[in-house]
């Protein structure tokens, strides 16, 4: 069975926030809720890198473990989804998640929590695929249409990868090999080579078919 994964390539992400916009638009995410965000490390300094992060659909999901009403379930594709009819909006998943993925629509000055909302890997929820009800609660269900999450599909630099874990890891492995070879061949480090320039990079991955 396929196991769906996101992977964000820090060497490619240019912090355009296209994935964030694509996600919001595709899923009609309410104001104040961000299923995906781009985090920039060392913003404005040497070695600045950005990563796009959302629910990572963990194998051993902390959110599912701590949920007091057990509203999470893992699909055959390895996606961690939740049932908003069961969710009581307690916020425990938000405490447990390392990635800050669970989001809560905030209401009023005391910010009482509504139902949790998070990235569904564009796979909707427990309702019938692409039903109006599913659309209203969870947004798009692109997976049922044979498509991948829009954030990754829209990524201009193909930094954000989404799909079957083995395919994703193959793509990424290829990239690492290319970069590794180029670095070693030229005796430069990432630091003084201004890595993003591809000028003069030779030594494409060996043994390409």
């Amino acid at each position: 069975m396929a196991r769906m994964k996101f992977y964000c390539d820090a060497e490619r992400c240019i912090e355009c926030n296209g994935c964030v916009t694509a996600c919001k638009n595709e899923n009609d995410v309410p104001w104040g809720v961000n299923r995906r965000r781009v985090v920039t490390i060392k913003d404005g300094e040497a070695g600045e890198r950005s990563l796009s992060v959302a629910c990572m659909h963990c194998s051993d999901a902390p959110c599912a473990a701590v949920c007091p009403v057990n509203c999470f379930y893992t699909t055959d594709d390895g996606l961690v989804l939740h049932d908003k009819d069961i969710c009581i909006g307690c916020g425990y998943c938000f405490y447990a998640c390392p990635f800050g993925a669970p989001q809560f629509p905030e209401d009023g000055a005391f910010a009482s929590r509504g139902k949790m909302d998070k990235c569904t890997f564009c796979a909707g929820g427990p309702e019938e695929d692409n039903s109006a009800e599913e659309r209203r609660k969870y947004g798009s269900n692109r997976l049922a249409e044979g498509k991948l999450p829009l954030c990754a599909e829209m990524c201009a630099t193909k930094a954000l990868l989404a799909g079957d874990a083995s395919v994703i890891s193959d793509i990424y492995r290829k990239r690492v090999v290319n970069r590794g070879a180029s670095v070693l061949d030229w005796g430069v480090s990432y630091e003084n080579a201004s890595l993003r320039s591809s000028k003069g990079v030779q030594g494409k991955a060996t043994m390409e078919e």
């Binding site: 965000r37 985090v39 490390i41 990563l51 992060v53 902390p62 390392p98 990635f99 800050g100």
Partner: peptide
């Protein structure tokens, strides 16, 4: 929102 991994979770 700038914290990528919160290990305390």
């Amino acid at each position: 929102s700038g914290v990528l991994i919160n290990q305390l979770g």
